[in-house]
Design a protein around this nucleic acid. Sequence first.
DNA 1: CGTATGCGCAACCATTTGGTTGCATTTAGC
DNA 2: GCTAAATGCAACCAAATGGTTGCGCATACG
Lengths: 111, 111
Amino acid sequence: MAPNSALAAKRSAPIFAALGDETRLRLVTHLSNGEPMSITRLTDTAKVTRQAITKHLHVLEGAGLVRGVRQGREQLWELAPDKLEEARRCLELISEQWDRALERLRKFVES
Amino acid sequence: MAPNSALAAKRSAPIFAALGDETRLRLVTHLSNGEPMSITRLTDTAKVTRQAITKHLHVLEGAGLVRGVRQGREQLWELAPDKLEEARRCLELISEQWDRALERLRKFVES
DNA sequence: CGTATGCGCAACCATTTGGTTGCATTTAGC
DNA sequence: GCTAAATGCAACCAAATGGTTGCGCATACG
């Protein structure tokens, strides 16, 4: 295992967990066009209650994936892409290591 | 939202959910060097019971991330990187869309 | 052949999760 | 100022999750 992968796992797991729900992943993709959206607007395209959506948004917020801003009587939510990048790097690390392992195996077989 | 992102969410969410546990993510990084490992060996580096590890491995198998092969009295587990790639693409899709949104915003502000 | 190792299965348990409903509170707009 | 819209808060609930222990079974090995 890579040296600091234990730390990486500890940091990345909550992000993956937050993305690991269909409703939440759809919320993230909804917000991924960059436009902040209100809760009711986000609820319109979903199949569950506004309260459920609110809970999901707080879960995403807890993972650092979104942030909410109050504007008048509306609460607007927008994407916070830093953590997304972190998750992406974690996956890339794993697949890169796997690719290197495959490469070593190929060379070993060919020799 | 992108046209088929609903489908993407349905397919990707279970993968993220499987990766969204610290123990499981560490199992994946353990296996990411390409060498298949037995359950007891994987348990050695973990903090929980062999049974817990077995359960986690089955969760990862259910998500298509690992596969197990019986060899004598040992059950060896290895990474199945196709699904990893799928999750990686999903994240990349989201961040790309976000990048494009930022680009549009920048051009709008500058004009 | 007997023993120790590696696993699988099942039961059980506490906690978390995802969801609902009901009601209170703030703000926009006529 | 009154009404309707948007949200927050709290209680409650069923099901899933992560973990344990105990036991039984197959296989390697001296």
